[in-house]
Write a protein that binds this DNA or RNA. Sequence first.
DNA 1: TTGAAAGCGCTACCAC
DNA 2: GTGGTAGCGCTTTCAA
Lengths: 346, 346
Amino acid sequence: MGIADKETRNVPTLASIAERVGVSVNTVSRALRAPNTVRVELRRRINAAMEELNYVPNRLAGGLSGTRSDIVGVVVTSLYYSEFASIVDTLQSGLLEQDLQVMLANTRYNPDQEVRLVRSILSWRPAAVAIIGVDHPPKVVELLKASGIPIIEMWDVGGEVIDTAVGMDHASIGAAQAAHLIAEGYARLAFVGSLRENDRRAQKRLRGAEAAVVAAGLPEIVRFTAQQNGSPDLGERLTHELLEQRPEVDAIVCNSDVVAFGALRALKRRGRRIPGEIGVIGFGDNEASSCVSPSLTTIRPDRERIGKLTAEAILARINDGAPKTTVVDWELIIRESTRRRDSQNQ
Amino acid sequence: MGIADKETRNVPTLASIAERVGVSVNTVSRALRAPNTVRVELRRRINAAMEELNYVPNRLAGGLSGTRSDIVGVVVTSLYYSEFASIVDTLQSGLLEQDLQVMLANTRYNPDQEVRLVRSILSWRPAAVAIIGVDHPPKVVELLKASGIPIIEMWDVGGEVIDTAVGMDHASIGAAQAAHLIAEGYARLAFVGSLRENDRRAQKRLRGAEAAVVAAGLPEIVRFTAQQNGSPDLGERLTHELLEQRPEVDAIVCNSDVVAFGALRALKRRGRRIPGEIGVIGFGDNEASSCVSPSLTTIRPDRERIGKLTAEAILARINDGAPKTTVVDWELIIRESTRRRDSQNQ
DNA sequence: TTGAAAGCGCTACCAC
DNA sequence: GTGGTAGCGCTTTCAA
């Protein structure tokens, strides 16, 4: 059977409601859009007819003819491991109040895909686009600028902003990670985890950390990285390689908490005492980071706040507010995996 | 400034391309949709004009006039803690190949919200809808059935299916959790975690576990649950309550791994030996579950497979394939938190 | 191979 | 308060 009967099925339209009630299409439309311009008893009958026929307005038509489309395009680089899921979640629920619908795209850190997906999103004539990052292929920037709609860049800030940005200063995060390790007495740092060519945020954090290390007069950061997705297995594998090739390393900056989980596993398997012999710091504050042992020192981004501020920025921009960039705070969460001085020092 | 210039900005249309090239709108449309019906040199000029003007087709118009809309509505109950994020991820990338766009909605386990969101999604005239669960408010079922489009219910199976389902048998999961604990010699089971009124999957698992316990002649399962989102903090709090009020309990079934993380923390704080004195089993196989200590025994749903099969089912149904229900396997992952017999027994 | 014309379902504008 | 009319930008016949 399939959906062959779709053609014969008559989805109710404004016209069918109008006919049934005996009014013009126009009146039915106003009953929805500006109810108080329609006589109350007529409105009642119209609503009854809609209810009865299970009428669902066709927003494609509405968007085509009206001035706004009520779609917000959301472009992320990943959905795995809670990295951006809760941003999308908060953003979504903020937009819901204004009946704005989220159209989702996931580039998986692939710039060609990003161009394709942005084009695809724009083809729905969204009211606004929210996108992860401030570094995009030139074509993406061109397309987004040409669209003339509000563009909110999330998660990162700095450099050229297309329109409005809500994000963190990732260089300062890297600097804080290194500074914390150095303050705890670690001196030979390594960076472990996924470091994709197109993950500019990770690169900025690494550079921030490198600057801090150089400023402290310590040897440069050793890198053990990969292009693939971060995961405990990746962290474990890279950490084993690290320990074999660079045994002098006494602290590991992981690009994400899930990578750090694997690093902890590798270190324990090799009998290295954490944080005594070697320290580990993560990034992201995974829900499990306070539950592993030793519990993981990490950076906690305020994802809810980014999602919420992005929703607010979208609404403000749609209502002709001015573009602006908001730098969102993050927090260094010190737990056991790096704390080797007395508790008085934390 | 805001976006006030949006009105004056001329977004290129098929007509503007046509005018520029000196052909009819029609020809430009065919150059996109059926390129080989257009003279090659004309096609070249048309493509050049599109490139130059940064033309992006208006799919609202296309969907309105054409037969399909290329939107797939995806309705989830949560985006937190990786519960469904990777399903959405896989699904999305499967649909991408067919240029189908995901429109996302998150009900947060609220049935009123579900009705509202399904209505909202349907108003975009999607080509199909994928939705978590097989238990929905009657209005949702009515709306989805009346829409005449393929409906794929994900994650759960059993009972009345609207059209097509791809999910797991949650009762058997609960039974397996209990059976494993019983086989390891535990006898006084508790269920801990979020147990929302509208999370039928959790309820089915609990009932499956209860049946197994009864069949084994053991006392009924003690419940310490809450309506809120599952989290380590919730697990910790409920476990403390549990241990105070029902000290005889020797095994805990947690409704999710993140809850189990909190349970482990509470147990360790109280000096209970795991798995010796008390066992803990989770659900969901969180990325950190192999990294906590003791590592967590849990159930691993095949989220990638569910996402992939859902994408395939959508494509099949759109192309007039028949509806069908697919039961997806899950796996019991035995780790340290429950393994108290010799390793030969695992 | 190309073009003209109708229409998808709705909103917006102007009469009444 | 209500209705007529003209599009929105595209696809889809049907003719040329």
